[in-house]
Amino acid sequence: MRRVVVRRAEPARLGEGLRAYRLIAGMWIRSTTAYRTSFALTVVGNLLITVLDFVGILLMFSQVDTLGGWTLPEVALLYGLVATAFGLADLLLGSMDALGARIRDGSFDTLLVRPVPVLAQVGADRFALRRLGRITQGTLVLCWALLTVEVSWTAAKVLLVPVAVVSGAVIFGAVFVGGAAFQIVAQDAAEVQNAFTYGGSTLLQYPPTVFGTELVRGVTYMLPLAFVNWVPAAYVLGRPYPLGLPEWAAFAPPLVAAGFAVAAGLVWRAGLRAYRSTGS
């Protein structure tokens, strides 16, 4: 009898997680597209909701030429970056806020008896293609902003745009994971998560110059949302960085995202451990 406990290496575990995610997300796609009309309606509805988001900004700019010293194309760049990044995270992990409900109705236990990572199962839970609406709209606004904004483009600036979007998606993804871990402890308080996810993405749609220094400091050093778009956009637009961050900070998003993702992973593990020792 072998009694040697082999701890499988992390990369293998990641691959297994992604595979499980694909399998489960595929099941949800088939579940939701089973009702065609309903699916089409929700896609359109989702697109409308996100469009409305930007209409609010357009309404403001119908009354003013600049907001916090930023022009409409500049704010649109902020908006496009954050909406696309948040949209990606929302598509991939957005249903994690249903975790509290799963714990309450007991169905979370059924995920724990499967031979695949729980995080992958929870992340893929209720995967919904209708969330493509936000990404579509964000990308459109981003493209419009890139075409209209007055910038002397360099290779570094061009490269920074996709890097910022992907890093931003990882940062928001980490927020979703951390929020899910919090829900294990406080199942009924799912709405707190909205303050950081939807609240965070709303905050980042506006220039940092609009907000009080304390708030900007909070979303730079405590919850590094500023690296989703404020800092990269400031570099692209040649504007002063919030809080006088150093020049290289614009290229920090991948590092920040990686660090934040690791932190979220640890928080998730702690949350899962707490669940398995308390059962609630």
């Binding site: 406080a186 199942q187 009924d188 308080a189 799912a190 709405e191 707190v192 909205n194």
Partner: peptide, 9 residues
């Protein structure tokens, strides 16, 4: 708890 969370948000 839900009310407190709502207040915060």
């Amino acid at each position: 708890a839900a009310t407190a969370a709502g207040v915060f948000t």
